[in-house]
């Protein structure tokens, strides 16, 4: 059997695994985004700029921690099941988002921010109308990194009993079925590519065209 035959014959079971996989990633990414944005906004406030710069250093380094390690570590605390996976993925996904949000917000030129204030924007309006749009390109890039990482790392989550497409690959590994391993791999890769394409599309409508013109 090759990978496609395997997929054709086991479609109901496979589609359930896809749904599990997407579910884990979806919840984790949403959580990462909320936490990453919120933290990134807080640490980029002028009064907390020192904290912000420290965070950028820490998150920059933290991206080098292998994702498997985070899952293994979470396993120690929350045991078997999808909960462990989702928490681990959320934590892991926060890192690139927080890094990008805080560095982009800290890079918003002070005179632009002051112009906004000088025209009578409240601090919230400055954030929503000026700072976040200016940082949007970088925020989207962080989100895309998080999604890509989470889609692939969720595969490993199979070992802590979280289900998902990792199950197909790891079962294939234990019973030596190259078709299963290949099928699982193809699916994970396709999801990663498709979600990135979708996000690239969203990015185009979120980020102002005025920012992509070379200055």
């Amino acid at each position: 059997m090759n990978a496609f035959q395997y997929l054709g014959r086991n479609w109901p079971g496979v589609s359930a695994k896809i749904a599990q996989h997407l579910g884990m990633v979806g919840v984790a990414v949403a959580a990462s985004l909320v936490v990453g944005l919120a933290l990134g906004i807080v640490v980029s406030r002028p009064r907390l700029q020192k904290v912000g710069r420290a965070i950028i250093g820490i998150t920059g380094a933290a991206q080098a921690v292998p994702s498997v390690a985070v899952i293994a570590l979470m396993f120690v605390y929350t045991g078997i099941g999808p909960r462990t996976a989702v928490i681990a993925l959320s934590i892991y996904g926060v890192v690139p988002i927080l890094f990008n949000v805080s560095s982009a917000l800290l890079l918003v030129p002070a005179d632009i921010r002051e112009a906004a204030r000088g025209m009578g924007m409240t601090p919230l309006q400055v954030l929503v109308r000026v700072e976040l749009p200016l940082a949007s390109q970088s925020i989207m890039a962080g989100l895309r990194t998080a999604v890509t990482i989470d889609v692939s790392t969720a595969t490993v989550a199979s070992v802590v009993g979280a289900g998902g497409l990792g199950d197909i690959i790891f079962i294939g590994l234990s019973v030596v079925r190259p078709d299963m391993i290949m099928a699982g791999t193809l699916l994970v890769a396709s999801i990663a590519i498709l979600s990135d394409v979708l996000l690239a599309f969203i990015q185009r409508s979120v980020v102002s065209r005025g920012l992509s013109i070379p200055s």
């Binding site: 632009i112 112009a115 906004a116 009578g120 949007s136």
Partner: peptide
């Protein structure tokens, strides 16, 4: 201060246009 600033026109050194707005 917010009302005050909205009632005063302000042109800053180096213009300060918002690049993401038309």
């Amino acid at each position: 201060p917010i009302d005050l600033r909205r009632s005063i026109g302000y042109v800053i050194q180096e213009v300060g246009l918002f690049p993401h707005f038309t």
